[in-house]
Design a protein around this nucleic acid. Structure first.
Lengths: 331, 331
DNA sequence: CTGAAAGCGCTTACAG
DNA sequence: CTGAAAGCGCTTACAG
C-alpha cells in the first residue's frame, strides 16, 4: 500500500504538502496540487484511516450495542443509525449482547478504548456506572429505546402513551375485558407500556388483567404462553394487547388454536410494530414506532455531541418519538 | 486518559517494560510486573486500540457488508458473525448497502483503508473487481450467501438443492402444478433456487411455472403480486414455492384473500426460513438454512485467513451449508 | 505557498 | 531482565 511518503517522493514535495493538498486543508499552489493528485492516483494511494484516527484522536466510528437483531426492531433501528452514519462519514461498529451484562461490559470496554467516538446502546441496565464513566471520559453515550440512566441522552418511543392509547382504542371498539402481555418489568419499555395500560384501565373503570411467561421476553413463545394463561383465567376476555409483535404472533396463534375468531371474538394488537403486522394472514393492528427515524436520530445526537466544541458540549437530550396506531384486521 | 507513559512513570520503568508486562509478551520480573499492574490499575489505564492497530497493522476488525438487515436472514447471520468475532477478539463493522453498487463501492473503499482486516460481504455483484483487488491487497474477502466471484472464498446455503428438494417433496405430497416465485436472476441464490426447481420439475415431467413482480425482490409485496399472477394464470395450481419467507407471507395472504384453503387447496412453502415460518397462524413449511452457523463460519474463514502466515495463506474455500426441510401446516 | 519537526500511543527488534 | 530508539502513517503548529 502506497503511503503519503511514496506520494510525496513521486510528486517531489514534502509529505505535509501532500497531506494539505489531499485534504484541502490550506492553500496549495494549483500546479503542486495537480502533481500531488497525479502521483496519488498513479500509486493508487489510499489514506490509512487508523493513522489518521490516532493522530486526530477520532476514528469516525459509532459503537452500537444491542441485545439482539434478528426479528427485532433493533435491526431496523440499526439500519437508521447506519444510514445517518454513512451520511456523516462515520462507520458503525455493532455489538450484540444477548442482554448479558458481562458481555455488555466487555464490549463497552473494548469500544471505549479508542474503538468508538460515541456509543449508542440499548442497555441491560446493569452497567450504569460504566456508561456514566464513558460519558464522563468524553465519549458520548446515547441510550436507545431503553432509558435507564437519566444522566445520559436517550431516544425512545412513547411506550406509556402507546399502552394508554391501545386501551382507549379497544374500549371504544367495545372491549371491556382487556388483557396485557406485560413483559419484563426490569426494562423501561415494558414498564412504560404497563404504566400506560394500568392508568387507562383504571380511568375507564376496567379490571387490570396481565399475563406473563417464563420464556425469553421478546419471543413468540412468551406471547403464546401468556395468551393461553390470559384466556384460561379470563373466560370473558375480549382483547389482548401484546408488548411486541412476536408476542402478538404468539397470541394470534393461541387464539386460533382455540377456534376463537379474530377480531369477532377476540381482538389482538401489538404495541411495537416491526412492519411484520401487515404481512400476516390476519393482519395485526399495532402501535408502530418510527424505528428507522429513531436510529437516525440517535446517530445524529451522538455525532453532534462528538463533534461539538469540547467547551460547549450540548446538554443531555431525551427524545421521545410518538407511536402511531395502525389499524388492521385483528381488531 | 492514562497512557503507557503515565503508567511507566508511576511504576518507575520504561514504557517498553510496561508494554511487555501488560501484554505478557516476554519475561518480566514478577516484582516489576506487580508494580506495573498496580500502576495501571491505579490510573485506570486502558490501551488505545488505535495506536496498537496502527503499530501492528491490524485492528482486529471485521467488515460486514449486507444489503439489508430488517426482516432478513442477514440479521441472524450477522449475529453469528458477531458471536464468532467476539470469541476471537474482533469487532464487527457493519455496512448496509440497500444493494446499491455505488454505496457498496464507497463502503468497501472506506473499509479497506485500514478500517477492516477482513471483509464479509453479500455483494451486489457489480463490484467484483474491487473485491478481487481488496483480496489481492492482503485483506481477505469472504462472500456471504451470494457467491458471485469464484476467486473469493464463500459461505452459502445449498439453494439449488433446496429448490430441488422442495419440488420433490411437494410432488410426493400429490402436487402436479407447482409454481415458483423466482426472484431476481441476477443474484446467485435466486438463480440457484430456480435451477434446482427447473431440474426437478423437468425430471418429474411437470410444467415449469414461474411468477415475478416489479417490487423489491425480498418483500411481502413481491410474494403477494407474484402469487396473484401465478394463481390468475394457472387455475390448476396446487402449490407455490416462495424463494424467501416474506414472499411466502405474501403468497399466504394472496391465497387467503381468494378463499383458498391452505394446505387443502393450495400448498405454500418457502425456500429460506427466517424462523418466522413457525410463528404464523398457519405455520409455514420451509427449507431452513443454518443462518447463525453460516455467520460463524464466515467469520472463522475470514479470521483464519487474516491471521495466517502471509507466506502460507490458506487456499480459497467454498462452504456450502445444507438446508433442511421443516414441515409445518402450510403443505 | 511549502518544508522540517514533533507527536498521536503504542510495539518490537536491538543492546546490554 | 530492562532501557533506548525507531517507527507504524498520518496531521499540524511553527517557521520562513
Amino acid at each position: 500500500m502506497a503511503t503519503l511518503k511514496d506520494v510525496a517522493k513521486l510528486a517531489n514535495v514534502d509529505v505535509s504538502t501532500v497531506s494539505r493538498a489531499l485534504n484541502n486543508t490550506s492553500y496549495v499552489h494549483p500546479d503542486t496540487k495537480e502533481r500531488v493528485y497525479a502521483a496519488a492516483k498513479e500509486l493508487g494511494y489510499r489514506p490509512n484511516v487508523m493513522a489518521r484516527a490516532l493522530r486526530q484522536g477520532r476514528g469516525h466510528v459509532l459503537g452500537v450495542v444491542v441485545p439482539r437483531l434478528h426479528l427485532t426492531t433493533f435491526s431496523e433501528i440499526l439500519q437508521g443509525i447506519e444510514a445517518e452514519a454513512q451520511k456523516q462519514g462515520y462507520m458503525t461498529m455493532v455489538c450484540v449482547t444477548e442482554d448479558d451484562p458481562k458481555v455488555e461490559r466487555d464490549r463497552l470496554n473494548r469500544l471505549r478504548n479508542g474503538g468508538a467516538d460515541g456509543i449508542i446502546i440499548a442497555a441491560t441496565g446493569r452497567n450504569g456506572r460504566i456508561l456514566r464513566d464513558i460519558q464522563a471520559s468524553g465519549v458520548p453515550v446515547v441510550q436507545l429505546v431503553r432509558r435507564q440512566e437519566l444522566e445520559l441522552s436517550s431516544v425512545v418511543a412513547d411506550f406509556e402513551a402507546s399502552g394508554r392509547e391501545a386501551v382507549q382504542y379497544l374500549y371504544q371498539k367495545g372491549c371491556r375485558s382487556i388483557g396485557l402481555i406485560a413483559g419484563s418489568q426490569h426494562l423501561a419499555p415494558y414498564r412504560g407500556r404497563y404504566e400506560g395500560y394500568r392508568k387507562a384501565v383504571a380511568e375507564l373503570g376496567l379490571e387490570e388483567i396481565t399475563g406473563s411467561s417464563q420464556r425469553k421476553v421478546n419471543s413468540f413463545g412468551y406471547g403464546y404462553e401468556s395468551a393461553n394463561q390470559l384466556l384460561d383465567e379470563n373466560p370473558a376476555l375480549d382483547a389482548i394487547i401484546a408488548a411486541v409483535d412476536v408476542q402478538g404472533l404468539g397470541a394470534i396463534r393461541a387464539a386460533a388454536e382455540r377456534g376463537l375468531k379474530i377480531p369477532e371474538q377476540i381482538k389482538i394488537m401489538s404495541l411495537t410494530g416491526h412492519r411484520v403486522g401487515r404481512m400476516l394472514e390476519t393482519t395485526m393492528t399495532s402501535m408502530e414506532m418510527p424505528a428507522f427515524q429513531m436510529g437516525e436520530s440517535a446517530a445524529k445526537l451522538a455525532i453532534e455531541e462528538i463533534e461539538a466544541d469540547p467547551k460547549h458540549k450540548p446538554a443531555r437530550r431525551h427524545i421521545n418519538f410518538a407511536t402511531m396506531l395502525v389499524e388492521r384486521e385483528s381488531t
